[in-house]
């Protein structure tokens, strides 16, 4: 089933719906808000929450517990994301932090919101679309793949045939 078709009303995957519900019904809404300032180190215009990496937050006494999920297995950025989240919490007055890495449900690009996709495109990284990849510079749909494995584990390298600019594409996963 293809949930991400551009020409139909976007449906939220159930895992993503559950994640949003965890945030909305959370008793630690201020911590979620605090962490909205922690950006993906490789695409620093979308937050860990928007990326889908930040899965849950809970609090037990003085200890804040974060649940993160990796995008790619070998993604070296997960360690940096964890450090950045810890630093933001420490600065916000939460010194005791534990981080759990949860693998299931497995992260997917289907969780990226239209808003996150728009921010990524403005930053120069195209996001995977069912209807084909469009150039983030000029909007042309006339693009070709240079390499399926780009500058980081999560990106492919494309080239725009219309404006000749090479650009990164977030791999569909």
């Amino acid at each position: 089933m293809n949930r991400a078709k551009a020409d139909c009303i976007p449906l939220l995957p159930v895992e993503e719906l559950a994640r949003r519900r965890r945030r909305h019904e959370s008793s630690v809404g201020d911590i979620w808000t605090l962490l909205d300032d922690v950006m993906d180190p490789e695409i620093p215009v979308i937050s860990l929450y928007e990326l889908g990496v930040l899965q849950d937050i809970s609090r037990d006494g003085d200890t804040v517990k974060l649940v993160l999920t990796p995008t790619y297995i070998g993604c070296p950025a997960l360690g940096i994301m964890e450090e950045d989240a810890r630093a933001a919490l420490t600065a916000g007055g939460y010194a005791q932090v534990t981080v759990e890495t949860r693998l299931a449900p497995a992260w997917t690009t289907a969780w990226l919101t239209p808003e996150a996709r728009r921010k990524m495109a403005e930053y120069g990284v195209a996001s995977p679309e069912a209807g084909g990849t469009t150039c983030p510079q000029c909007g042309s749909a006339n693009t070709e793949v240079i390499s399926e494995f780009g500058s980081t584990a999560c990106k492919s390298l494309f080239r725009c045939v219309a404006c000749y600019e090479p650009f990164d594409v977030f791999k569909a996963l």
């Binding site: 070998g74 494995f149 780009g150 584990a153």
Partner: peptide, 12 residues
């Protein structure tokens, strides 16, 4: 870059 990326996937 591609070979390094696949290597990274396997080490991960």
């Amino acid at each position: 870059i591609a070979l390094s990326n696949v290597a990274l996937d396997f080490v991960g």
